[in-house]
């Protein structure tokens, strides 16, 4: 289980997170929603230790993440980055098999390649794609290849940062269904960031809304539509007038 207690983070004078309290239960799928630039990506990066939070505590199974063994900690995670972040110096299959080809438990090349091709098939990419370089793929294919990389080493915990942004509605639907299937099938804990309400409904067990550096609302997805919070309502309906200022 992941627990955040009063996590804050500022970049220079800009306070991004102002005290985040959040629990993610083992095996559940949490979706974090919130406007652009509210610090959703920063939140995930703080948990992973890519960005050092200023104050508060982040615990994984009761242990402070800043004090755990980094390698063992990171081995439990998979992350799909907002922009894909595929390594453009190597073909797709080596991207997917990156972790399998390195480190203490590394596999022989042929075996790692077979796993990569299997994972690519899992996200709907064929074996021909495996030999291409990331720059040769369309946006949707890059997202899928990244998704394959995130799940390749079968992590316990997977973070998806805006998995459907920039994709057409059909491809979004495909990716949403894939994420839901993968999470259910692998029994993984998942945290997904999105501002796409169809993703929320497809992926979430629970929803948390980030606004002004704090968790504004959280609860089961089934209670989301009936919730009285005016900020959440505005976000769901996409109305231009409401408590969330539209001039950002």
């Amino acid at each position: 289980m992941i627990r955040l207690e009063g996590v804050t983070k500022a970049f220079g004078a800009k306070q991004v997170l102002r005290g985040i309290d959040l629990d993610v239960e083992t095996g559940e799928s949490l979706v974090v929603i919130g406007g652009s630039g509210t610090g959703k990506s920063v939140l995930l990066k703080c948990i992973l230790g890519l960005v050092r939070h200023d104050a508060g505590r982040i615990l994984l199974d009761g242990e402070d993440v800043t004090r755990t063994d980094r390698d063992a900690f990171l081995a439990r995670f998979g992350m799909l980055f907002q922009g894909g972040a595929l390594f453009d110096s190597m073909p797709v299959w080596q991207n997917v098999a990156f972790r399998l080809l390195r480190g203490p438990g590394r596999l022989p090349k042929a075996e790692a390649r077979a796993v990569a091709i299997e994972k690519l098939a899992r996200v709907g990419l064929d074996a021909d794609t495996a030999e291409l370089y990331p720059a040769e793929l369309s946006g949707g294919m890059q997202k899928r290849a990244s998704l394959a990389r995130a799940i390749a080493a079968e992590p316990d915990i997977i973070f998806f940062d805006e998995p459907t942004t920039g994709l057409d509605p059909i491809m979004s639907g495909v990716i949403n269904a894939l994420i839901r299937e993968i999470v259910t099938e692998m029994g993984a804990t998942a945290v997904t960031i999105t501002h796409d309400m169809s993703s929320v409904r497809a992926i979430a067990d629970r929803v948390a809304m980030l606004h002004a550096g704090k968790i504004r609302w959280h609860g089961p997805v089934s209670e989301m539509d009936a919730a009285g919070d005016s900020y959440l309502r505005q976000f769901i309906t996409g109305a231009a007038d409401g408590p969330i200022g539209t001039l950002r």
Partner: peptide, 16 residues
């Protein structure tokens, strides 16, 4: 370029 496209972050999360 790797830094601004989060490839460096991706390396870290892949334990490298």
């Amino acid at each position: 370029t790797m830094k601004v496209t989060e490839q460096i972050d991706a390396l870290v999360t892949l334990s490298t």
